[in-house]
């Protein structure tokens, strides 16, 4: 079934119908979520009652609290942003170092270490969260019991959340950056060294600028993955609830159009982030 092999009209028709159905399937859940963020009804369901911005702007009048006045959701948004910032910083820096390590240096046991680097990809997110909880929180419990010292930093909370997410996002950042480093022409760097640059200067003036698009791409990906993660996050959440966990708790109490408003807001932010990195690449 390639372009040069003749196809029947019927086959083409069926194929196109399938493509169309596929893209409808992809778009439908997101479209309805977005549309009901503006429905003037306390429930996100048909019939359509008219357009409203209440689910963003209402400040408690008529029993409606919009997203921008909902302190619980806004503080959860802020918690998620903080976590995502630190996760991005940590996993992208580690990713840069790992990429240079595996693409540029030769050492004994490299194959084995590379497989270890890939390992987090084949561990379910729940298990990553559980293992970090058991190790660090268990350690904090033991220390508290044996010596009466409180290691609050290792209790469920922001630090553990950042650690749990860095554990697997680093692998993805490494793969993105290493793929770009592999395409780099090393002669450029050698030219810089021949012209008298020190290795560090050559790295920052020649190699790093070449890597920059992939570093930015990895950063956008890391930020989104951290922001949207649930499975690892829910195991490590302390008193400060990140947005996905807060939304999940709300959803179990029953759905309101405020959830749709948050969902649409998140989609727009992600789309914006994705578009800027796409533009960077060109």
């Amino acid at each position: 079934m390639i372009r040069s092999v003749p196809r029947s009209r019927l086959f083409d028709g069926v194929y196109l119908a399938y493509l169309l159905a596929f893209f409808v399937y992809l778009a439908l859940p997101l479209v309805v979520t977005a549309v009901f963020a503006f429905n003037d009804s306390p429930f996100p369901s048909l019939p359509w009652q008219g357009f409203t911005l209440d689910w963003y702007l209402a400040g408690g009048e008529g029993g409606r609290t919009g997203l921008f006045h909902d302190d619980g959701l806004l503080s959860a948004l802020w918690v998620s942003a903080k976590i995502a910032f630190w996760v991005t910083l940590g996993s992208v820096s580690l990713g840069c170092v790992n990429a240079v390590l595996f693409e540029r240096l030769e050492f004994r046991g490299k194959e084995l270490l590379y497989l270890l680097m890939l390992l987090p990809l084949v561990i379910p997110g729940v298990i990553l969260g559980v293992s970090i909880l058991v190790f660090y929180s268990g350690m904090a419990n033991d220390v508290s019991r044996l010596w009466g010292l409180e290691l609050d930093i290792f209790r469920p909370g922001l630090t553990l959340l950042v650690m749990g997410q860095v554990a697997f996002i680093t692998t993805l950042a490494t793969l993105v950056i290493a793929a770009r480093l592999r395409k780099f022409d090393r002669q450029l760097e050698e030219a810089a060294l021949n012209l008298g640059a020190t290795p560090l200067v050559a790295w920052f003036t020649v190699t790093f600028p070449w890597l920059l698009p992939s570093v930015l791409g990895a950063a956008a990906m890391a930020f989104l993955m951290s922001f949207e993660n649930f499975n690892t996050t829910v195991m490590l959440t302390g008193s400060d609830t990140p947005l996905t966990v807060a939304l999940f708790n709300r959803l179990r109490e029953g759905s309101t159009p405020v959830l749709n408003a948050v969902a649409l807001f998140l989609m727009l932010v992600s789309a914006l982030l994705a578009l800027t990195t796409l533009r960077q690449k060109r």
């Binding site: 893209f23 992809l26 778009a27 439908l28 859940p29 997101l30 309805v32 979520t33 009901f36 429930f43 996100p44 369901s45 048909l46 989104l224 922001f227 949207e228 993660n229 649930f230 996905t244 939304l247 999940f248 959803l251 759905s255 959830l259 749709n260 969902a263 998140l266 989609m267 992600s270 789309a271 994705a274």
Partner: peptide, 27 residues
């Protein structure tokens, strides 16, 4: 690109979308 678009939303949002479509009071 169209294949990638749904994944700008998180798993929670996607699941929520399906709930709105499929449930008893759904679309």
């Amino acid at each position: 690109l169209a294949c990638l678009i749904p994944f700008w939303a998180s798993e929670l949002v996607r699941t929520y979308g399906w709930m709105i479509l499929l449930r008893e009071s759904g679309v």
